[in-house]
Amino acid sequence: MPQVSLTVNGKPHSVEVEGRTLLVELLREKLRLTGTHVGCDTSQCGACVVHVDGESVKSCTMLAVQAEGADVTTIEGLASADGTLHPMQEAFREYHALQCGFCTPGMVMSAIDLVMKHPEGLDEKQIREGLEGNLCRCTGYHNIVKAIAAAAEVMHGRRTELAQAAE
């Protein structure tokens, strides 16, 4: 069986997999990182999004062997070692951008990539278009859009602290 060596959330791993093992299966079943979810089998829902070498990918649409040598970040690896949340995680909480939580890890990982790709800033339309690959059935996206806009301000240094949601 093939062996794949990769770094996940800063830790090196070397794991034996089948050729057909998906990256998400490696993360969930071999490394027990179950924060990354599987919500569909047609590569559309985005619940499985992780970062591979800094870019968001659907881990259900990538073979584990294709991640050889890669640096993978999952939702479990976002917060600082001291437990401080990433601004995007914090914004999702502040803006009530999650309900059942199932799409949330993928949504957060996609949102971070979206913001990082737009240092110039994002308007509501760009955020909505940028979420093309992530489905949420609970929130109607309303608060997700607001959370991403607020997190972007912090991530690009335009604000030092997250703007509070309106009461």
Binding site: S43, V49, S56, V57, K58, T61, S110, L114, E132, G133
Partner: peptide, 9 residues
């Protein structure tokens, strides 16, 4: 085309 994740791969 596709979505961001498709375009990244």
């Amino acid at each position: 085309l596709g979505d961001t994740q498709v375009r990244n791969r």
